[in-house]
Design a binder for these strands. Structure first.
Lengths: 237, 237
DNA sequence: GAGTGGTCTAGACCACATG
DNA sequence: ATGTGGTCTAGACCACTCT
């Protein structure tokens, strides 16, 4: 009998009980689950209902199915993490420093896969905490020739979430990220008002259109311990 | 007509066509999709088949449903990234440096939520590239009292994937991660044979049991540009 | 009251695995 | 030949929302 006996769907109890058996080790990774028809009898349910419960486990990544053979428990991966990154940092404000067209340096050429003579627009931005201390510095580059208005809405939203409405959003691009550590060089130290050699977390993002064209490149330097990245892997009960 | 006309299931074409309409902007984020019954007519399919196609979109994160109202297109998040992290670095070897019981310093006390007098086991490890250069240094801490063999298999696998068989794996824990940049202090510089102040990427991991008990803590310092972290966000066609 | 999504059933046919 | 999962149908009842 369910707890408050509201009206728990059958397939969720099937899903839940199998899930428990996976978590408590009754079914070990790699093992096969009982067949659909066995589960039908066990739970006194129709086949589609049983399949619905199994489908849940499958989309959770707990099991997979091999057609005409059976269902198997997955081996959990502890190496894939979900990490959240935004330029917004709790309690801080942002300030535009500069917006202008430039010729790309080598790094930007490579990131956007463009020629040295192709103009790009550079956006510079500072993040400042309540005490007025500069915490982060960002540079963003967009190829100039891009005037596709369809892409622009999305890109602006991705690059400048603050000033764009979510409604304009589309699925026209995805983002690749690279995280590394750097020491502030003289230029960075002057801009960010820190000492040369200070360790900074560098987050680079590549904005990629669905046709694989590179639509933008962003660098985000952040002082420590601000802007640390956090994430999760595995399954939680 | 499908391409090679093998035998494409109906629900995948429903899924695919709706997916295309989302990606090409025919359905914008926040908008409502046609009702199930409308889709039944449009695709000449039964309701469960239509629902199956919609379910796929839902588990992809492209749509969500509000009961008794309709299906809506999600607003894509460009701030959640999937990042892969392993201690293994292409072409490098690992070397155990030290394994012994110690009393935890403050950082480890906080990470494992234990008392200063509770012994922990410390594992030290070096990663060395083919040229013999030290690239990374890791420290791992396990509370000593833990002798639960059930947990140990999983933990050992998570902490020492090299020396444990996947079959022993269970779902008894998940991992939290924190990424930051640090400068090598004198101690680190000596261990890693680098100069004091050199920027290092620091990856901390917390191994957490399903009952929220902390089962392990790992620090991974890696020289740049080795061990950069890469990830993705958004949807790819 | 009409329309919606959520759940569930009892069939059916298929193609393929394994013995 | 039997059992398996994969697909699909045509119903059904429910609880809710909208107008």
């Amino acid at each position: 009998m369910p707890r408050t006996s509201k009206k728990k769907p059958l397939y969720t109890t099937i899903h839940g009980q199998l899930r428990s058996k996976i978590f408590n080790g009754s079914f070990l990774p790699g093992e096969m689950l009982p067949s659909e028809s066995q589960l039908c009898m066990e739970f006194q349910a129709s086949r589609e209902t049983v399949r619905k419960g199994l489908k849940e486990l499958e989309s959770e990544g707990l099991i997979y199915s091999r057609a005409k053979i059976g269902y198997f428990v997955c081996t959990p991966r502890h190496s894939d993490f979900t990490v959240n990154f935004t330029e917004y940092i709790e309690g801080c404000t942002t300030q535009y420093k500069n917006i202008h067209g430039i010729l790309p340096d080598e790094r930007v050429q490579k990131a956007l896969d463009i020629q040295p003579n192709q103009v790009v627009i550079e956006f510079e931005q500072l993040t400042i905490n309540p005490e007025g201390v500069i915490i982060a510095y960002s540079k963003k580059y967009l190829p100039y020739e891009k005037a596709h208005p369809s892409v622009e809405g999305e890109l602006n939203y991705a690059v400048f979430p603050e000033i764009t409405m979510p409604k304009l959003d589309t699925f026209s691009l995805y983002t690749s990220i690279r995280i590394s550590a750097v020491a502030a060089d003289d230029t960075l130290a002057e801009i960010m008002q820190c000492s040369t050699g200070e360790p900074l977390l560098l987050v680079e993002r590549f904005f990629i259109q669905q046709d694989e064209q590179l639509a933008g490149y962003a660098l985000f330097y952040v002082k420590q311990p601000y802007g640390q990245l956090n994430g999760m892997s595995g399954y939680r009960l």
